[in-house]
Design a protein around this nucleic acid. Structure first.
Length: 802
RNA sequence: GCGGGCGUGGCGGAAUGGCAGACGCGAUAGACUUAGGAUCUAUUGGGCAACCGUGGAGGUUCGAGUCCUCUCGCCCGCACCA
């Protein structure tokens, strides 16, 4: 019998399902808990791609190890099931999006089970389940009750093609992240969540997390905390004043003009009679431009003089005020003080408009603005100071004068939370006849989606639900007031903001999760998923978690203690997998041709988990070969007969080193090196005269974390009836790692000349003597003066000669 | 431009400051075979050698792929955030 992966995989998949092998009793607190979570997938019509099993295999290996190590392991899977593709499919084919989505979920689940992941399916959740989104709506009501959800008529990113509004995070280069359609700015009525209220904590608490550095940085950049000074500029001969924000208050003496953003509320008020026409034309043109057309460092710096001057509070200098679209209305106060000598943008603008420049730091400004640190000049009391000291001095002065104060600004904007879509959670709000908002009482949740004939939004941004039957739209409050239900739905991010909470207690009808369970199981110990969620999902989820912490629902400040991103798997040609490139690998085909275990092994062995790595057909063959090589050890009589209960000395070191290495590497998610060591052990087994049964069993056990089907099969063939799930993890016998003899490389001036095999307990003197008398070392010492001998115990001996 | 990451054989990749290239892929030779795209054995960074080799140039150190400075190249984010 050779390695019959098809039968083996079918057999054990059935056995696991029949025995409910991976059930986690979350109420059992007798063992330490371990919560290992995958980012749940959007169940697309395409099914799994080879990228999915990469992260899932990694988390599965850890889950399997932790169970064997005596942890109560929660390892759930679910579905991020609201989403645009299902809605678009529904529009096209005129079927309910849920029908399409449920079918995809079924397919995904089948594929996932074929890969042997040890999920506890009793914890399965889908964001489209009524029992689930009831609680998504509940959280929204709590946010509303705590003044963190509000309606705004702000200009939003509207995508005509998709017929919906998008969050800033969903717009990339002026196009929709999904589909790549153009996005325009227009004011619309939207629900917005006050994520900015949490900006400081979202930034600060990043320090406590075991997350990839790059992701921490991306979140910090996105939040964009920046400390500076807000300064008030009085308009000359006018009652109005405006505020600017600067991080370079030290350059205030070099300010020669100010700029307001076109959106700034004072622009039309301040414009002089002569300039009014030109200013209004400019503002109109600017607002018609998309963000993409306006922003970009290389864009020409245009602007128009308002016809008024302002007073620089630090020196009383009269300076012109401009409107310019290089100033963003959405950041700071929408106005800046311009210091052309020391800011590149101001420099470009001043050159173009022939404006005055005052240099206030020593440096060359003949070609470009000088932005480095130097001594201040032309700055009165700040002369001679560097940037940091000048900032302190000038800020102090401004505060004394009442003309400025320290402030902290964030790039983070509030989260536009409504979508003009059908296939999302209805927002549990009502607009009463008098125009006021009315939150639907909790006991009336869930607000389910109505059945509809059509799912597309109407032109002009009216959501599909606006066309719902009046039986759905009309609402009467418990005290008899009439109103209309909110017809916007929530964005897809809503459901994924808290699914890790629901997994713990997924069928609880009374709360989002039992309180005691929540406190026990959170935070998630290990979270694995793609780096594409570094900002969006992970920031929103942290925001909701912090809110739930504030209202006493969860007991910890952060949801995901340790985060890891699996790297992308490229096509065999090193390019991103895509249909158009024709390099897409389908996991179903690999399972059919090589088996799920081979696919898992290959993906884990291909390289470090976090790196981008190309697919390799020969590498997959290699993985398959290794499994066969392992399998033969148990399956082929000539090898199997070598397995005995008598200790086989030959493998003592190899095995115990393996246990140590695999245990540590699995913990570090360094699966490629763990597998390399397994290969070394198997090579040693092939060389060994006899195989000590406990070593073979220990190996099979560790191997089964990576290749669970064939691992369990071998376990059974070794005479065990039980599943491997809770068999105690192998232990490393440190005593067996101590060698009688050690290899000591001897180098002369850093170049290795020989390697000596010496008793492990050799003293420094003995090692030195052996080295100095060594025939292969001697020639390099002849006629030279030995200046120094460095001995690092058990590692190396270096002789320094002149 | 700013931030983060990475440059090691023909390829994927190993190396707590201590024998660079573990392990695998590929390749070469041989064995067993009717056969071999199965399996096993051996070899496999370059060079005849001394030696030379971790993108390049310096530096620290007894000793550097690893630490420091500069530089080149690639990948990923952000990008007029004042």
């Amino acid at each position: 019998m050779s390695y019959d992966y098809k039968n083996i995989e079918t057999k054990w998949a059935e056995a696991w399902a029949a025995q409910n092998a991976f059930y986690c009793d979350t109420h059992d607190f007798s063992k330490p808990k371990y919560y290992v979570l995958d980012m749940f997938p959007y169940p697309s019509g395409q099914g799994l791609h080879v990228g999915h099993p990469e992260g899932y295999t990694a988390s599965d290996i850890v889950a399997r190890m932790k169970r064997m190590q005596g942890f109560n392991v929660l390892h759930p899977m679910g579905w991020d099931a609201f989403g645009l593709p299902a809605e678009q499919f529904a529009i096209k084919n005129n079927v309910h999006p849920e029908v399409f989505t449920r079918k995809n979920i079924e397919n995904f689940k089948k594929q996932i089970n074929a890969l042997g992941f040890s999920y506890d399916w009793s914890k399965e959740v889908a964001t489209i389940d009524v029992d689930y989104y009831k609680w998504t709506q509940w959280i929204f009501l709590q946010l509303y009750a705590h003044d963190l959800a509000y309606v705004s008529n702000i200009p939003v990113n509207y995508c005509p093609e998709l017929g919906t509004v998008l969050a800033n995070e969903e717009v990339v280069d002026g196009k929709s992240e999904v589909g790549g359609f153009p996005v325009i700015r227009m004011p619309m009525r939207q629900w917005v969540l006050k994520i900015t209220e949490y900006a400081d904590r979202l930034a600060e608490d990043l320090d406590e997390l075991n997350w990839p550095k790059s992701t921490l940085e991306m979140q910090r950049n996105w939040i964009g905390r920046s400390e500076g000074v807000a300064i008030t500029f009085q308009i000359e001969d006018h009652k109005e004043s405006f505020q600017v924000f600067t991080t370079r208050v030290d350059t205030l003496f070099g300010c020669t003009y100010c700029c307001l953003a076109p959106e700034h509320p004072l622009v039309s008020t301040l414009a002089s009679a002569e300039q009014k026409e030109a200013v209004e034309a400019y503002v109109k043109a600017a607002s018609a431009k998309s963000d993409l057309a306006r922003t970009g460092t290389e864009k020409e710096k245009t602007g128009v003089y308002l016809g008024v001057h302002a007073i620089n509070p630090i020196n009383g200098k009269s300076i012109p005020v401009y409107v310019a679209d290089y100033v963003l209305g959405s950041y700071g106060s929408g106005a800046v003080m311009a210091v052309p000598a020391h800011d590149e943008r101001d420099y470009a603008f001043a050159k173009k408009h022939g404006l005055e420049m005052i240099q206030v730091l020593e440096g060359d400004i003949s070609e470009n603005a000088f932005t480095g640190d130097a001594k201040h000049i032309h700055s009165d009391f700040a002369d001679g100071l560097n940037i940091a000291d000048a900032k302190l001095a000038i800020t102090k002065k401004l505060v004394e004068m009442g003309a400025g104060d320290r402030v902290i600004n964030y790039k983070l904007r509030d989260w536009i939370f409504s979508r003009q879509r059908y296939w999302g959670e209805p927002i549990p709000m009502v607009t009463l006849e008098d125009g006021t908002e009315f939150p639907i009482p909790e006991d009336q949740l869930p607000i389910t989606l109505p059945e509809m004939d059509k799912y597309q939004p109407s032109s002009g941004g009216k959501p599909p639900l606006a066309m719902a039957p009046s039986s759905w739209l009309d609402y009467v409050t418990p005290d008899g007031r009439e109103g209309t239900r909110e017809t916007n739905t929530m964005p897809q991010w809503a459901g994924s903001c808290w699914y890790y909470i629901r997994y713990i207690d997924p069928h609880n009808p009374d709360a989002i999760c039992d309180e005691k369970l929540l406190k026990h199981w959170l935070p998630v110990d290990l979270y694995i998923g793609g780096a594409e969620h570094a900002v969006l999902h992970l920031l929103y989820a942290r925001f909701w978690h912090k809110f739930l912490y504030d209202i006493g629902v969860v007991g910890c400040k952060e949801p995901f203690q340790r985060l890891f991103h699996q790297g992308m798997i490229l096509g065999e040609n090193g390019e991103k997998m895509s249909k158009s490139r024709g390099n897409v690998v389908n996991p179903d085909e690999i399972i059919a041709s090589h088996g799920a275990d081979s696919l898992r092994l290959f993906e884990m062995f291909a390289g470090p988990l976090n790196e981008v790595k190309p697919w390799s057909t020969t590498g997959l063959d290699g993985a398959h070969r290794f499994i066969e090589r392992v399998y033969r050890l148990i399956d082929e009589p000539s090898f199997a007969s070598k397995i005995s209960d008598e200790n086989s000395k030959e493998l003592d070191y190899s095995y115990n080193f393996l246990v140590k290495k695999v245990t540590a590497d699995f913990e570090d998610l360094a699966f490629n090196t763990a597998i390399a060591q397994m290969m070394v052990f198997i090579n040693d087994c092939y060389k060994a005269k006899s195989l000590y049964r406990p070593y073979i069993e220990g190996f099979v056990q560790m191997f089964s974390c990576i290749c669970p089907f064939v691992g369990q099969e071998m376990w059974a063939r070794l005479g065990h009836e039980e599943l491997l799930t809770y068999v105690a993890w192998p232990k490393c016998d440190e005593a067996k790692l101590v060698k009688d003899e050690v290899k000591i490389p001897v180098s002369v001036n850093g170049k290795t000349r020989n390697v000596l095999l010496l008793p492990a307990d050799s003293s420094e003197e003995e090692v030195k003597a052996a080295a100095l008398n060594d025939e292969r070392v001697k020639p390099f010492l002849e006629g030279k003066e030995i200046k120094k001998v460095i001995y690092v115990k058990g590692r190396i001996l270096n002789i320094v000669v002149a």
